[in-house]
Amino acid sequence: MFYIYCPYCQEHREEEEFHAAGQAHIARPADPDNCTDEEWGDYLYFRKNPRGLHHEMWVHAAGCRKFFNMTRDTQSYEIKEVYKMGEQPQIVSEQDSIARGTA
C-alpha cells in the first residue's frame, strides 16, 4: 500500500486515490506521418519495464485529477521522488537509456 505525495495538492494521500498511468517521458514521434512501422510500434507498445528504478506517471484520480511523475523502485516499491509534468527526475539509474534492437 503506497502513501503518495501529490505534488499539486502538496499532501500525502492513500494509494486508492491514485491510478498508475504507465511509463513516463515517452515522447510522441515528432513526425508521425513518416514513422516506420517499427518506430510507431515501439512508441505505442514497447516499454522499459525495469526491475529497479522506474519513472512512471500517476494520476490523482480521486483528488485534483492531475497527472504527475514518480520515480519508484519496482523491486522494493520505495517511492524515491515525485515531480510535476514537464519536470525531469533528480534520481536516475546508471543504465537508464537502452535502445531497442541490436540489428
Partner: peptide, 18 residues
C-alpha cells in the same frame, strides 16, 4: 515476469509490463 529483464541482457526490449 522477468522477461523484460532478460531481454535487456540481450539488448532489446519487449512490449511487456510486469
Amino acid at each position: 515476469g522477468n522477461s523484460s529483464v532478460l531481454a535487456k541482457m540481450a539488448g532489446f526490449s519487449l512490449p511487456l509490463e510486469s
